[in-house]
Design a protein around this nucleic acid. Structure first.
Lengths: 212, 212, 212, 212
DNA sequence: TATGAATGAGACTTCATTCAT
DNA sequence: TATGAATGAAGTCTCATTCAT
């Protein structure tokens, strides 16, 4: 599932450590100037080692981008999953997930933005892996919605469930990639509340006040 | 409102002609390989003139990107406005606009994608102009929704109207920037229908068929 | 027959001029330090233009090597042919050619050495072209010898003719690539005379003075 | 006579063992890609130890080349000498040596080629040693020919003996460095036979069958 | 106004060599 | 004695931009 980036170095622990340094450096640089305007030398320097060392842990500059994207997904997902508690059920569970997701999108604004803008520069072989991870994100919401459907709380076709989950993702991600338009109008809490209302409303849950 | 890109050439007619050639060439190249991987030489070649001539009409490569973005907005907007007929009113008018918008997003898939991915490379001075155009797009929908509110068909606060309009934009644009996830599930017609339903539902119009 | 090295520059006259400068610079550098230890920057500098300009006339460093080899062959051949007068016939004609060839090998010592040592670094596509040129050189002598055979002055099979011609070439080229062993023992005139005697003797001409 | 390559390691047995591994690895790599395109890491890897260990036994990459050349000469010479039996005398002894030499050139094709192409990259201090070895090779034939002269079977000046011996060497080595031209025309046996005939003929032995 | 040859800073990447473990 | 991670100088090549024609 994960594409391995080959390294000249054997010590796996060390690889992990150095790549963490590298990713951290890269994310902060990519945020600031984008992938193309960031040089490998800068990445190495900010990471705290030499250009030679950088290339002991990757083959080409693009590999850094892949490592960055891969790592962002893992972090986003981890954060998200640790906030969805198993107790709650149905629509409330979905709401809880939405809350968590918006929170994470706020925390990872820059990272999400980087991914939106630079994914096209990923090494060709790796793009599918990254897209699969994005689909995996959507599937979290698909499952939550489908559970509601199965329990009779929502009436949606399969394709609607799929579409809704992608809408949810995009409506959360826009907090990152449209902040220039949103920050001046909402706090993240206000935004979350509003989007949550829109989404729940759009899913048109059965037996709510606006029926009868 | 529009930032002028200085040119060495005086003849305005000629400027317009050359820039059209240039933009057409650039769009097709940016679609294919992105802004950074496209060279000025290529742009000139595809445009049908020499690199020297290219630089008679712009100062730097980034200027081409600005011209491209600017032109895409104008075209998108033009297309959109020519499809919103003045006769219809209220929710139906909004629906009509949604329809038109999704159609345009389908027609301009590549262009929208380019803008999403390359906007960050715009010359610093010009980014605000381009963002203002995007806001202008949102305002079209803001106005349509606000009309419904004013006519009592929707109950939404000002901030909700603003948020809804940005949601609409993003839910249309995602047809371009998430086609890898959507194309396999929907035709543009299916997608339009689904998204329209979600949006209208989210706006929760008073006294419609799904009430009673 | 000749593999064309593509150039960014259109003006054919200019291409020729610049490539001459480039080849001259490269030969003198390759002589001194070999292909691998010569940098493209040095070639450009010695040629009298910038590194950027160099790359307007070639695609990769290896192209310079090809141009160099190609040009050396053309020059060697030209020099050789202009010294073989049409009047003379038979063994004398062969002797005349040998003389000319040894003279040329003396004049082009460094160039021949460069070719012997660097040919393996030629771009893969071009090696066959260069080898064909070397075979072409051998064919000059093949023809001269075959003429003698046809006139009944030599008795040699076809394969012997072929072998003899390659021996001739190598025995001339060794003046270049074994000068460390030969210079201290012979002048080029002495060497020529000796090798000529060996070769003619080896071909064992019928009915000459050393028989009876 | 042999230039010593300094080593950090004291144990002479170990030095010898490691260097053998190293040379074997290097030869096979140099054959394949030449000296410059072979990396020290590769040499160490193929030799079966680490890059750190490699540098315990040499000072610089060039040292490997020297060790390789030196070892090739020793092997070639050993092979050659073990095939020249002491019983035979005169021209026959020379013929026997020629035979042996051509056989060895066939066996060591790649090695001979490597030496021809890479000798120029030898460490400056060591080139004379290597050339001396090549001269030593020539001296084997010089001696054999001179014996014939001394016995009155050949009439040659000292310089002719020297020249002939170098011709012999080169005419054998060409089986390695011109195989692209020869392999398609001759087997090694045919080639040996032909060259032997040419050489003996060139030496013009007194009182042989082709006289009278 | 149009051309395109020239420029050179700067990007990525490699690899011989060192040195702490 | 063996290891292999770290280093950084140096190499190749690209490309935005200029300017003489």
């Amino acid at each position: 599932m994960r594409k391995n980036v080959p390294s000249m170095v054997k010590d796996e622990k060390l690889i992990q450590k150095r790549r963490e340094q590298m990713i951290k450096a890269a994310v902060s640089l990519f945020k600031e100037k984008g992938f193309h305007r960031t040089t490998t030398r800068e990445i190495a320097r900010v990471a705290g080692f030499s250009i030679g060392t950088l290339y002991e842990y990757i083959r080409k500059k693009e590999d850094v981008l892949y490592l960055v994207c891969d790592s962002i997904y893992d972090e986003v997902r981890e954060r998200l999953e640790e906030q969805i508690k198993p107790g709650v059920k149905g629509i409330d569970r979905l709401k809880q997930a939405l809350h968590a997701f918006y929170q994470v999108m706020d925390d990872f604004q820059d990272e999400v933005l980087v991914m939106y803008q630079e994914a096209k520069s990923l090494p060709n072989e790796t793009l599918p892996y990254v897209l699969k991870k994005e689909i995996g994100m959507a599937e979290i919401f698909e499952k939550l919605i489908q559970d509601c459907v199965d329990e009779g709380m929502l009436q949606l076709t399969e394709e609607e469930v799929y579409g809704a989950s992608h809408n949810i993702l995009v409506q959360g991600q826009m907090w990152a990639f449209r902040r220039w338009a949103l920050r001046s109008h909402y706090t993240i809490e206000e935004f979350t509340k509003m989007q949550e209302a829109f989404i729940i409303q759009a899913l048109n849950p059965i037996n709510t006040a606006n029926r009868t």
